[in-house]
Amino acid sequence: MLHVQNRELVVPGQLLAEGGYVIRQGAFREGSRIYSSVVGLADLHGQEIRVIPLQGRYIPKRGDVVIGVVIDTHYSGWILDLNSPYVGNLFVSDLLRRKVDLMREDISKYLDVGDVLVAQVKDVDELMRVQLEAGEPGLGRVEGGKLVEISPAKIPRVIGRKGSMLNTLQSVSGCRLKVGQNGRVMIWGDDQRMVNAVVEALLMIEREAHTSGLTDRVRAMLEKLKSEGGE
């Protein structure tokens, strides 16, 4: 039996449902009762219950694409800041996708402290030690562009349903975007004015993430900025 409506705003400890529902996220079970554990929107999908959080830090999960900043190097790899309580570990072999003889090769030529890269979370163990990989196409060190940080809880909104928001952002502005689940977004564009417009749009999405019709408003805002010309 359900005690909340779909998309209802819930608070920690609020009774969501009773019975054999499957908990996806943001809730916990006590006996047959299911309670919310965070402030968020209840998302009911058949037998699945989820609370979409409105706040919170990024917690690494296997398979996530993240944008990290190298904060340290060691003899076989690098340590990356992930805008999270937990740092990421990247080994040379997971960057180059080949065996590396550390006795012969100096790995410092591949990455340096301060470099930004797109990586995928390969594994997270029970002690929250994070292993990254960055060898696949589309991953790896990034050059140029602008790095923006927003709240990780708002990232699903930046992507939108089936990527709709992301498509809008890219097609209207003419910029290329790379979105990390950890709340970081890279923007590349030839027109600096449109890059800044995308930054504004991202901040707008962050502010108004839980409102409806957001994609249309973002499109309108970007088109307005675009038509205002280069003055």
């Binding site: 608070v11 920690p12 400890g13 943001g26 554990s37 965070v38 402030v39 409105l54 706040q55 919170g56």
Partner: peptide, 11 residues
Amino acid sequence: LADAGIPMRDL
């Protein structure tokens, strides 16, 4: 704590 998005059993 709740505002920070930290999972809680109750307030």
